[in-house]
Simulated scan of single mutants.
Amino acid sequence: MSYSKFSASVLAILAVSATAAAARDEIRIVGSSTVFPYTQAVAEQFANNTGAPSPIVESTGTGGGMQIFCGGIGEQHPDITGASRAMKKSEFDLCVSNGVTEVTEALIGFDGLSMAVARSNDFDWDLTLGEIYLALGAQVPVNGEWVDNPYTKWSEINPDLPDTDILAYGPPPTSGTRDAWVELAMHAGCEELDFVKEGGFDGDWVEENCSRMRTDGPFVEAGENDNLIVQRLEADPNAVGIFGYSFLYENLDKLKGVKIEGVEPSTDTIADKSYPVSRPLYFYVKNAHRGVIPNLEEFIEEYMSDDALEAGGYLSERGLVALSEDRLRELQDAVLDGKPMASPEK
């Protein structure tokens, strides 16, 4: 693989920033709380293999990470950001406006968006996407009217569900997990409702009216620290949590997954697409820092290694659902060669 395929503009940026950037010894990484445990695992493996300083990995959320990553080049700016959704055009434009003109995108694998409860909760949870929307949407249909959500108990949505208060801990708006949850669970759940289907409402209507999580108490934004949600579920067996599958996978001794549409979240059901709420995971590399920040190339090589990313690799052991072999080889070639991404369409 060649690491020299940078444009003249990037080489010019390197010439300007090399002295400042080289003053920092540690690789700096920000971004998604969902991607964080995978990147942290690679950082530990890299440090063990090479003896180099372990990269500094911060869990800032996808949106926050993009803002920091796109802030500029040089030692004060991070080298990589993790993301639980693809970079938006507005974020790409922010990067370009701040001189971050060449970025490589890496789709590293897939993750399920999980609902979970404490193991001490003995109910056999199985929710439809429509029931999830009715529990957590800011507005819902009641008697043919679109109104503020009145439901306070699960049994009010379906009498077969527990007669307990709805309480769900989930990610804030800055999180890519929140963006993906709204798109994959809330929009899809809203589209299941008879009110929407029989009313002939289109995708634009759904996006406008079904994107807001309720703010009257049953849904609680728990910040970017998914471990805090795990602690809250342990403390309250009636609560449910929303986070990436990796956190459920890492805490199966404490938590159990909620089935969605009859399917339990697992690496197998996410891989075969039978689990209805799954999404790709990414990281983004600032190409102007390659060859300038010590050990950055070597760290990227470790992240792209078969040991890390293949099915059965150490990241799949932590819950990442691996790419197919063909897609993995294509990814490795693009990332190791520093192939710059094109501007997203939206």
Rank of each mutant, 00 (worst) to 15 (best):
L233M: 09
E234K: 15
E234L: 15
A235K: 06
A235N: 11
D236C: 07
D236R: 14
P237S: 09
P237Q: 03
A239Y: 01
V240H: 09
V240C: 06
V240M: 14
G241D: 03
I242N: 05
I242R: 00
G244D: 05
S246G: 15
S246P: 10
S246C: 10
E250S: 15
N251G: 02
D253S: 03
D253A: 02
K254L: 06
K254P: 01
K254E: 04
L255E: 01
L255F: 01
G257R: 02
G257I: 07
G257K: 02
K259A: 08
I260Y: 09
I260H: 04
E261W: 03
E261K: 08
G262I: 09
V263L: 04
E264A: 15
P265L: 03
P265C: 06
P265R: 01
P265S: 04
S266N: 11
S266R: 13
S266K: 15
T267R: 08
D268I: 08
D268C: 04
T269Y: 05
T269A: 07
T269E: 03
A271P: 03
A271I: 10
A271D: 15
A271T: 11
D272L: 13
K273S: 09
K273T: 15
S274C: 09
S274V: 14
S274R: 15
P276D: 13
P276S: 08
P276V: 13
V277N: 07
V277K: 06
S278R: 13
R279E: 03
P280M: 06
F283M: 02
